[in-house]
Amino acid sequence: MNIFRFLGDMTHLISILILLLKIYATKSCSGISLKTQELYALVFLARYLDLFTDFISVYNSVMKVVFIASSLAIVWCMRRHRVVRRSYDKELDTFRHYFLVAACLALALLVQEKFTFLEVLWAFSIYLEAVAILPQLVLLQRSGNVDNLTGQYVFFLGAYRAFYILNWIYRYFTETHFSRWISCVSGLVQTALYADFFYYYFISWKNNSKLQLPA
């Protein structure tokens, strides 16, 4: 464990707490893409199958349970909670995310570290996480004004993988047998997708103005 990875995990946790706060405090999920939340739930379920087979550390197991439980809770809330689901922007959240799932599954079958069930699912979860934010970014552009909590949620979500990239650079230079090119390439793509959001987020922060994404 190094500081970059710890900061990355904490940033990821903060983004989830911000989303839970927004939904719980405002009893609304306007501006949040249910499809992105479903993709994240799938990412965690596919990646953390080893939760019961390989014990790495208490921290590792606890965080996996937190990520799986929170992502499923958010999906449940947006689909079933009688008050929250009324504020879901159903007509704006129209990204065909099943294509993302199919494409990532196909890619995982072609490119993975070892052609085994767990490795294919692990690669699938890495590829899917890289593109899972797309429905959310499209929804933000369509819905125009972004409320603060949603903006902060997306910002921390983008920042977490940027910390992981620093973690991989650090591990590359400090560990001998360290090769995670699948994660590194996907992580770079994932962080690059946030580039324009980060730009507009910085502009809105500098001008102390409302975050506006160009349609």
Binding site: H12, D50, I56, N60, W122, N167, H177, F178, R180
Partner: peptide, 10 residues
């Protein structure tokens, strides 16, 4: 390092 080391991340 053992194989597991590449999967010790979240």
């Amino acid at each position: 390092a053992k194989e597991q080391s590449t999967k010790d991340e979240l």
